[in-house]
């Protein structure tokens, strides 16, 4: 699986971080999306579905 984030689109609302069931995501010092631990990702795509800014995409490989 691969997680792609687009920093330019992210506004740091934190919705993806809240709804990620495996704590894969976090916000960096600038308040933008960052991947904490990609190995924990179960590809549930909650983040991709809920991101209001189209800043995160998860693909199965």
């Amino acid at each position: 699986m691969a997680i792609k984030t687009i920093g330019k689109h992210c506004k740091g609302c934190g919705v993806c971080v809240t709804f990620c069931p495996k704590q894969v995501l976090g916000l960096d010092a600038l308040g933008k999306i960052t991947i904490v631990d990609e190995s924990k990702c179960i590809t549930c795509k909650q983040c991709e579905m809920r991101c209001p800014d189209y800043a995160i995409f998860v693909e199965k490989k």
């Binding site: 689109h9 609302c13 579905m49 209001p52 800014d53």
Partner: peptide, 24 residues
Amino acid sequence: MEKLIEKYYRPRLPHIWCPGCGNG
């Protein structure tokens, strides 16, 4: 979703809505 954005959205993102707005 990424493919849908390429197909159906104009290349003018990010949008104007506030952080956390559900409109997106």
